[in-house]
Amino acid sequence: MALLGDWGVTLGKWAGRPPARVEKDSGDPAVRQVREAAEAADWATVREVLEARPESEGRVGLLWAVGETAGAERWLSRVVEAEPEAPLPRLVAGIRQINWGWEARTSARASQVSREQFEVFHSRLRTAEEWLYEVAEREPGWVSPWYALQVTGRGLEVGQVMARRRFEATVRRDPQHLRAHQQQLQQVCDKWGGSHEEMHAFARDAAFGAPGGTLLGQLVAVAHIEEWLSLDSGPDAAYIRRDDVKASLHRAAEHSYRHPDFVRGDGWTQVLNTFAMAFSLAGEPSAARECFRATEGRVTEFPWYYLDGSDPAAAYRKLRSAAGR
């Protein structure tokens, strides 16, 4: 993978160009509200915010905001004990266990994670699975427990067959669930035991099997970025600048954000950010410029942290400048 600095792009001011900042809380005020309530251990407000948001309208983002809150496992365990028959406390507590587990594992490579860290990681994921399965049984129509089980499944390495079943359980309840498809794409990546061929086939089938205007077009771009990431410097640029890769990206864009039925639903800014990066790497400045313009300076951590883990907005700004935006 080529380093961002290899692009030799000069930063500078662009007249009329909006500032580029990492979008906090997905631009959703309810995410900030529920996060602040979780930090204050205010279960009444957390529940109120979650119950007001349908599963089909970005509820997973709210749940994950609570799950990412440091220390929330302490007061959530008390809520679970106080409401033993209620599914929502178990769902929230289960998602916190997932995030708490990854905190123990860290984002380091597996070879750099100790046996003790893995034991804590797996213990917390197993606790999450127990609660999530209980929620799925009590609320069979809910999408979020099955999505969360996709995440635990990857961490516990349940295997491709079981992972596929969990994905299918999620999309039976919400066929266009972007996050579920993103999880399954990672599951079939080469780095998680799949292959490049399987990854690209999944991305194409999901994107073009959905109606025009779908957010799932992003999957095609993510798959090309993933293969680019897997290659050494030199072969990576040769790959993503191939004519067939460029054609694939344009076809996905036409079926997704360029389509007249495209709706700026939950996750739309990440979709545009992903295409902006993919087209930039592919040497398609006009297409990249179109995406940068549409994002209006809203930067999502994914996929830019692949280029600059400490400052995704810097990576965005650098390639935006290269595209002439």
Rank of each mutant, 00 (worst) to 15 (best):
A136D: 12
P87Y: 06
A41R: 06
F118A: 06
S107T: 08
G61M: 03
W142T: 04
G58D: 04
R53N: 10
A52G: 14
V60A: 13
V113D: 11
A41Q: 09
S123H: 12
Y133E: 13
E36N: 09
E48A: 15
A93G: 02
H122W: 14
V120L: 14
V60C: 02
Q112S: 14
L62P: 00
Q97D: 15
E137A: 14
V92G: 09
E139H: 02
R115V: 07
S144D: 10
V92F: 13
E139V: 15
V135W: 06
Y133N: 03
G67F: 14
L88Y: 09
G58K: 09
T45E: 13
E39M: 03
E55P: 04
R138S: 15
A44D: 15
W43V: 00
R74C: 00
Q97C: 14
A110F: 07
V113Y: 01
R126L: 15
V143F: 04
P140S: 10
P54G: 13
V46D: 08
W64C: 03
D42N: 14
L63C: 13
L132Q: 05
P89V: 13
R126S: 12
V120F: 01
A128I: 10
E116S: 13
E68P: 00
E103P: 00
A110H: 07
P87T: 05
A108V: 01
Y133R: 14
P84I: 12
A110K: 10
V49E: 03
E85Y: 00
L88W: 10
I98N: 10
A110C: 01
A37D: 06
E48P: 01
E116F: 11
R74P: 00
E85L: 11
G61E: 08
P87C: 14
Y147C: 06
